[in-house]
Design a protein around this nucleic acid. Structure first.
Length: 181
DNA sequence: TACAAGATTGTCT
DNA sequence: GACAATCTTGTAG
């Protein structure tokens, strides 16, 4: 599936479809690329766990923009988390990127993160690895410092569906997708 | 205007 | 396993 078609699909379909896709950033002249292995879907006004549930605010404004934008927000005042905005403009659907495997720029990531282990096994770490911060909120993922391109898929690996992490509402929804292995 | 809670992570015990 | 760090939003007074 091409990127355009994927971004137009249902948020759950996109969350699953982004597994195996490549996310590449060139920030400060240093390229880093990862294969996405973990995502979570957030469905705007229909989802009590979503930032967009209570309507549009200054912070989540990007979520209501057109599909293909990057929504970056600050978590617990310290970390950055990134989402891919999907669906129709004005709805507030987005897919949170939680984890990936580094395929390019490993040395850059090692330098950015103090610990050599656990490089990209969480949303905050993934952002730090790629060099993504709040100044990248709202950038277009088709062209710019950060580019998203659909991959060949997850291959033969199994995909797990589990409840989302770190939320207290709507935990019954299996909207987290993880590539096993 | 004040305060509690949150899509987290790193450090200390 | 517990807790601090630190900022934005929503709700209460």
């Amino acid at each position: 599936m091409g990127l355009e078609a994927l971004l137009d699909a249902d948020v759950l379909t996109v969350a699953r479809g982004l597994l195996g896709a490549t996310l590449r950033s060139v920030i400060g002249g240093r390229p880093v690329a990862v294969t996405i292995t973990e995502t979570e879907a957030y469905a705007g006004s229909d989802d009590p766990a979503s930032h967009a549930y209570r309507g549009r605010t200054r912070r989540n404004e990007t979520m209501f923009g057109p599909a293909g934008l990057l929504y970056v927000y600050r978590s617990y005042g310290i970390h950055w988390c990134m989402n891919v905005v999907v669906g129709v403009e004005g709805v507030g659907n987005a897919v949170l990127l939680r984890g990936g495997e580094i395929t390019e720029g490993l040395d850059v990531v090692m330098e950015r993160r103090r610990r050599p282990d656990q490089l990209t096994d969480g949303p905050g770490k993934l952002c730090q690895a790629l060099g993504v911060t709040g100044q990248h909120d709202g950038v277009d993922l088709r062209a710019g410092a950060i580019v998203l391109k659909p991959g060949p898929g997850v291959g033969g690996r199994r995909v797990e569906e589990t409840p989302r992490i770190g939320i207290s509402k709507a935990t019954g929804r299996l909207w987290r997708f993880v590539v096993v292995g």
